[in-house]
Amino acid sequence: MGSFLFSRLLSAVVVIVGVVCLVFMLIHLVPGDPVDVMLGESAMPADREALRSSLGLDRPLAVQLAEYLRGVAVLDLGRSLHAKQAVAELLAERIPATLELAFAALVITLLIAIPLGIFAAVNRGRVADWGAMGFSMLGMSIPNFWLGPMLILCFSLWLGWTPVSGREGMSSLILPAVTLGMSFAAILARMVRSSLLEVLDEDFVRTARAKGLDERRVVWRHAMGNAWLPVITLVGLQLGALLGGAVVTEVVFDWPGIGSLMIESIQKRDYPVVQGCVLFISLAYVLVNTLTDLVYGLVDPRIHGGGRR
């Protein structure tokens, strides 16, 4: 167990260092001179030099990278070019909104996916199964930048039930959460179905049925109890993916989170902030994935021995 924990944490550290290096490289992908792009051609030479040295672009690449890594370690992500504020501060202002949205979307995902998946599996091959999986296929194929506007049109503009955009109270959270959660719910529902179907074929389920247990007890206690593992992994992966998918949803609903900060900063060519946003979301993703792996390892004793690859 100890070595499993150690190897998982070690590989997480390697990945984190790699992620930071990639994010660092982003600013060097700006076509031409990043300083020109950020300040415009008409900027004063003195301003250019000041920005160049504050971004560290006048130093060798290796030194810049070392500086950036050191900065990230102490949560110093540089300063915004427009807000005249530290990037870390800007991020801290927006993090609660993104986390709130991601958790709400996760709750919606689970509320839709688990009943739908179980319903489909129990009715395998019947019209109900076909309908549930058709619904899930549809959910996977609807892009969230279209679902969002459509929900706004129905529930905000026509029915007037929810605000069109912004973040004011529970009612403003519902549509963004549904928009963000829909495609994940669709994927998860299929996972729950196939996972449960696999377990329903096992001998112990037949035994439970043979004992005369009623079907509800067989499905919920005996079968689902063993079908949770792959579902937990996917939920963990999804919580992280929800943070990434939130970018588009936040823009659609003008939700004041990290995603909309990132797009605003791209438009203003405020690259240190863009780097900060990518870094935060990716690190959160790595963290959630590592935790999921560890929980999976704890729950399933078969894992620690061999490793998962």
Partner: peptide
């Protein structure tokens, strides 16, 4: 390391930059 970037986040950042 590449899998550590969720969804199209990295693509958004790259296209933006």
């Amino acid at each position: 390391i590449f899998l550590a970037f969720p969804g199209i986040l990295l693509a958004i950042a790259l296209a933006g930059v």
